[in-house]
Amino acid sequence: MKIKTSITLAEDLLKVIDEQSGPHKNRSVFIEKAVRAYVAQVTRDRQNARDLDIINRQADRLNQEAEDVLTYQVLP
């Protein structure tokens, strides 16, 4: 379901939207796609930050495990 709303944008931004959206698209479609892309990026960034935090908290243990594995390798 779509809900009609109104927003206020800077004139220069509106000009860019009109240029980028092309002759067959409307502003609403362009802005909706842009907002969806932004929200998806923010969601990915948050997930990546959580994942990095988990990795960093486990780094010492993971590095020790990697060193242990390397000791089992046969060198020529």
Rank of each mutant, 00 (worst) to 15 (best):
M1F: 01
M1R: 01
K2G: 01
K2H: 04
K2F: 04
K2Q: 07
I3G: 00
K4Q: 07
K4M: 00
T5E: 11
S6N: 08
S6T: 11
S6M: 02
S6F: 02
I7V: 15
T8P: 02
L9A: 06
L9T: 03
A10L: 12
A10S: 08
D12K: 14
D12I: 12
L13F: 15
L13K: 13
L14R: 02
V16T: 15
V16F: 11
V16I: 15
I17W: 06
I17Y: 06
D18F: 03
D18Q: 09
D18P: 01
Q20E: 11
Q20G: 01
G22A: 04
G22T: 03
P23T: 08
P23H: 05
P23M: 07
P23C: 04
P23A: 13
P23E: 13
H24R: 14
H24E: 12
H24W: 07
K25H: 09
K25G: 08
K25M: 13
N26C: 10
N26H: 08
N26W: 06
R27P: 02
R27G: 03
S28R: 08
S28H: 05
V29N: 04
V29T: 09
V29D: 07
F30C: 05
I31C: 14
I31W: 08
E32V: 10
A34W: 06
V35D: 02
R36Y: 05
A37E: 12
A37G: 09
Y38M: 05
V39R: 04
V39H: 04
A40K: 03
V42D: 07
V42Y: 06
T43K: 14
T43N: 13
T43C: 11
T43V: 12
D45Y: 05
D45H: 09
N48E: 14
N48V: 03
N48P: 01
N48C: 06
A49Q: 13
A49I: 10
R50F: 06
R50V: 14
D51K: 08
D51V: 01
L52N: 15
L52T: 11
L52Y: 05
D53E: 09
D53W: 00
I54P: 00
I54G: 00
I54C: 00
I54H: 01
I55E: 02
I55D: 00
I55N: 00
N56S: 06
N56R: 13
N56W: 01
N56V: 05
Q58K: 15
Q58N: 15
A59P: 01
A59I: 08
A59E: 10
A59K: 14
D60V: 13
D60R: 10
D60E: 14
D60L: 13
D60M: 10
R61P: 00
R61A: 12
R61T: 05
L62W: 03
N63Q: 06
N63K: 07
Q64F: 07
Q64V: 05
Q64G: 10
E65H: 09
E65N: 10
A66V: 00
A66P: 00
A66I: 00
E67S: 09
D68Y: 05
V69E: 12
V69M: 14
T71H: 12
Y72W: 09
Y72L: 13
Y72D: 06
Y72S: 08
Q73T: 05
Q73G: 06
V74A: 08
L75A: 07
P76W: 04
P76K: 09
P76H: 07
